[in-house]
Design a protein around this nucleic acid. Structure first.
Lengths: 182, 182
DNA sequence: GCCTATTAATAATC
DNA sequence: GATTATTAATAGGC
């Protein structure tokens, strides 16, 4: 979209690169803003310039998010953290990074499906919700339990869910074509 | 940039909104990818659709960028955070594919184990709430409540991680009057 | 999803 | 930073 078409490859000239970064960053944030407004979506972007300078755009405001944040506690689980640490080979490459995320997601998805199925079964067993709902509201112990439950679910539910579509929704050509496991 | 010019205001028609979200999300991710490639920048985008579905794009990964942004405030309970850190290499080849396959398998297996183990531990911990837990699991209503709670936290968690210390690059003019509840 | 008229982003330039 | 020739994204329609 300029005087000339350019290849999507690293810009060599440092000056040009910086200019490009600035312009496109602005454009990206603008797009993000439009998306959030048009669709009422919550969007957060953080990035580091070639010179490692941090930039970000977010909607809604940080304050709102921080407020929400104050209600929750520290996360606790460590699902598969070490696993990958060991697999962190030397010169894997960008693509591999994404692929790893994909695998994580896939495996996690499997797990979640199983869990969901399990829950669904139990779901059918009882249908005394209204009663339980009242119980929850009147029981501090239960409330605490729910809170703990939520805390435990945070990472696996949140980050993995996020990472999920992270890889799936990658834009046009994945930079380089690659095949999944042979 | 379409058959017609549109106002940057919330799209009323739900169908249109969803279509718009999909298209623009794709476009945004594409732009983000181009930016990261062109400038070698690290970019992470997290968003929630109007229906609160999470999506994300990141290079090298959400975790890496978010971690960086948070200056290591988070602990390693994030899946595969450190792994991708140093992978700045850009060479992709047969070797990478092979390595990838290997890692995929390894990761997949071990991740499942880790996940299972994690679940087991969690269950034990929760045994003290066995009674309440049982109640929760047997009640669709409670489950839904928990899920809603988790969903709500998903947003705050990720938005916070990504936007907390974000301050710098807010886009230029909001394009068009936009109104959002504060 | 694919198509294409149209608008919007932006590369080169100043 | 501002301008503008071009390309790229996309709104509306299948």
């Amino acid at each position: 979209m300029g005087r000339r078409r350019i290849e999507i490859a690293e810009v060599k000239n440092p000056n040009t690169k910086l200019v490009t970064f600035s312009k496109r960053r602005t454009g990206l944030f603008k797009k993000a803003n439009e998306l959030s407004v048009l669709c009422g979506a919550e969007v957060a972007i953080v990035m580091f310039s070639p010179g490692q300078k941090p930039y970000s755009y977010a909607h809604p405001s940080v304050d709102v998010v921080a407020d929400k944040y104050l209600r929750r506690k520290r996360r606790s689980n460590v699902v598969g953290a070490n696993v990958r640490e060991n697999n962190a080979s030397n010169e894997v490459g960008e693509r591999l990074c994404q692929e790893l995320s994909a695998v994580e997601v896939l495996t996690e998805e499997e797990h979640k499906k199983a869990t969901e199925l399990e829950m669904r079964e139990k779901e059918q067993e009882a249908s005394q919700f209204s009663q339980n709902k009242e119980l929850l509201q009147s029981s501090p112990a239960l409330q605490r339990m729910v809170k703990d439950y939520v805390d435990a679910m945070e990472v696996s539910e949140c980050m993995l869910l996020l990472a999920k579509e992270a890889v799936i929704g990658v834009p046009n050509r994945p930079i380089t074509k690659r095949r999944r496991r042979n």
